[in-house]
């Protein structure tokens, strides 16, 4: 009997073979650009431009990374990017949760206005507000500053919306108990409601963080000093200033992608579910 069970299992596994082969092929094809990025980053210039191309670096040149870092301050770019991405992530969690809580739970003067603002902002893509926001930033005297990079994106309508949905679906009994204990509204938010929507906070943080991390156009429009460059902007500047040194360009690209991939590798379940949830709400 145990023998037939083993055969069954083997048969089932064999049945999955085409699926395995297919998906392995898909994954291989999908990874080709990343493989090409890493191998080109490791080739000396002559090898990187050779015809036909070498399929792996025959003379690995790790000095490319040192050289790329010498030519442009990627550590500074990285620090700028982390700073702006963390600030917008935290901003969206704090400001978004407060507003979402107010929308879901309270009746207050200004509720209608907030709802209208959220609705209007969800509909208009950020790109379409870049030109007027550029003028606003300039008039506020924030051009070429961290404020310009962060302030407009400190809270997104989508974050408020996600929090409103989660707070709305909290069981009433939990909050009622706290209210009977004489909790203030803020205390109730901080100690009872906010901890209960942890997954939403993660989603909001991941989405805003990724959005800022990937932003290129906005930093391009509102900053000009090299010290304020974020990674994406620094990379495009490196491309135009660095000329034809593909190996150095790929080394710089590897440096800009590595933190994201490391982060993804350590928390992939969280990121995948966060992005899926963000898309589906």
């Amino acid at each position: 009997m145990s023998e037939s069970r083993t055969t069954n299992r083997l048969l089932r596994r064999a049945g999955n073979l085409p699926a395995h082969l297919g998906l392995a092929a898909v994954c291989l094809v999908l990874l080709v650009p990343l493989y090409w990025m890493v191998t080109t980053a490791l080739k000396p210039l002559q090898e990187a431009l050779a015809t036909p191309p070498t399929l792996w670096p025959h003379h690995p040149a790790f000095s490319n990374f040192v050289e790329a870092l010498r030519q442009a301050p990627f550590a500074r770019y990285l620090a700028n990017t982390v700073l702006t991405a963390v600030l917008t992530g935290v901003g969206n969690v704090v400001i978004g949760s407060l507003a979402g809580y107010a929308l879901a739970r309270g009746r207050f003067r200004g509720r209608g206005a907030l709802l209208a603002f959220v609705l209007a902002s969800v509909m208009v893509p950020a790109e379409a507000t870049f030109i007027p926001n550029y003028v606003t930033i300039r008039d506020l005297g924030w051009y070429d500053s961290y404020l310009a990079l962060v302030m407009p994106w400190l809270v997104g309508a989508f974050s408020v919306f996600l929090y409103r949905q989660s707070f709305h679906s909290l069981p009433e009994s939990l909050l009622e108990a706290a209210r009977l204990d004489g909790c203030s509204e803020f205390r109730m938010f901080r100690s009872v409601a906010f901890p209960l929507v942890r997954t939403t906070s993660l989603t909001v943080f991941v989405l805003s963080f990724v959005w800022t991390w990937n932003a290129l156009l906005w930093p391009l429009l509102v900053t000009s000093r090299p010290e304020l460059r974020v990674l994406q902007l620094g990379l495009t500047a490196f491309q135009t200033e660095g000329g034809v040194y593909v190996n150095l360009l790929m080394a710089a690209t590897v440096l800009s992608v590595a933190p994201v991939l490391v982060l993804f590798a350590t928390s992939q379940r969280l990121v995948i579910s966060g992005i899926a949830e963000g898309a589906l709400k």
């Binding site: 400001i95 407060l98 107010a102």
Partner: peptide
């Protein structure tokens, strides 16, 4: 009423300036 408004003020200002007014 006031608490609700206080909760909403930061979002009202930021969304108001950089999204609604911008549009």
């Amino acid at each position: 009423n006031l608490t609700g408004l206080l909760f909403a003020v930061p979002a009202l200002i930021l969304l108001g300036v950089f999204h609604v007014w911008a549009s």
